[in-house]
Design a binder for these strands. Structure first.
Lengths: 170, 170
DNA sequence: ATTTTATGTCAGTCTTGTTGACTTTCCAAG
DNA sequence: CTTGGAAAGTCAACAAGACTGACATAAAAT
């Protein structure tokens, strides 16, 4: 109570009437859902001695083969020291290949190796399965709404990255 | 184009036709949106020298005043040792009060203090504001779908916790 | 030639997760 | 009643993964 939107009513037509209670439930839904969202990959990663950071790197390298370290840093929002540690182990383990850039030799272009792609498939399949089940349970209309709200929730810069990934088939 | 639920056609009535590409976009949307979701509280927490773990504890203690450590452990899904460290600092700093249980003296009942509630309000307001903006941008129908998909994405046990929190006014 | 950019590395810190060992309290079976 | 768990919580020590800061190298840009 004693808060911004509670009593403010909806004049016009689209202006939602949102109680703090509803907003809090939305916050809790995000929290619990995200746990489910990461649960399956987390189990797989643990078996191989990796963590979520490795998954994120693998995902986006797979999504944009040949991407540079700098671009990955931008997307993941971590420091290069942090990413480098993860990348180094993935390269040592033969899941990721780092090729020196052709046009700009300072850059490293990152690719998944054959076994990297296999691992990515394993992780992705688990996560996609949960996503598919949830989507089917909720229905087509709900899916559209889900995506709409998530996009609106992103910071502008992240939305830019998100849209850059759109329709860029792996 | 080729996005969400719109283009891909649905045979039958409920059985969604979902490409891997659509599912991957959903996964990425969750990733980027969650970053936005936590960004505002994270900034506030940092100023006070706390982390996300403190926020979670504060949130659920506020939501269920008098809750026990064990119940909190169940909801947060961490070890009691991990929660205890967080709880200890919050108690030392006078944001949380821990009262020995009446019926069972092994239990500790947790409450926010006055300043604890003030801090919770600060964190919550930031997060609710982002939520409200996203909800308004997406519209009422989208919000319903958003909630539907998130609930379907939770593990069964988390859904139980989520529903237990329903309509239990703070 | 000088500066800037892209990347990688070393060292050190912090948060938050883990396991293991321990205390206090409760309960129930002998 | 006592005794032996079981349950709740606390303390200690360690690991992953984030961060900052300093520094190195190579290549591009000026």
């Amino acid at each position: 109570m004693a808060e911004g939107s509670g009593g403010s009513g909806h004049r016009g037509e689209d202006l939602l009437f949102l109680t703090d209670e509803q907003l809090r439930k939305g916050i809790e839904a995000m929290f619990f859902a995200y746990r489910g969202f990461t649960a399956d990959p987390d189990r797989i990663l643990e078996k191989h001695g990796y963590g979520r950071a490795h998954h994120r790197a693998i995902h986006f390298i797979n999504r944009s083969p040949g991407t540079t370290v700098n671009n990955l840093l931008d997307i993941l929002g971590v420091t290069k020291q942090s990413l480098n540690r993860v990348l180094r182990t993935l390269i040592e383990d033969g899941l990721v290949e780092s090729r020196i850039g052709i046009r700009d030799k300072r850059e490293r272009n990152l690719y998944l190796t054959e076994s990297g792609r296999t691992f990515e498939e394993e992780l992705s399949r688990a996560q996609r399965t949960r996503m598919r089940v949830a989507y089917r349970a909720a229905g087509a209309e709900a899916v559209a709404g889900f995506r709409k709200v998530l996009e609106a929730m992103m910071d502008a810069e992240m939305r830019r990255h998100f849209n850059n990934l759109k329709d860029s088939a792996p």
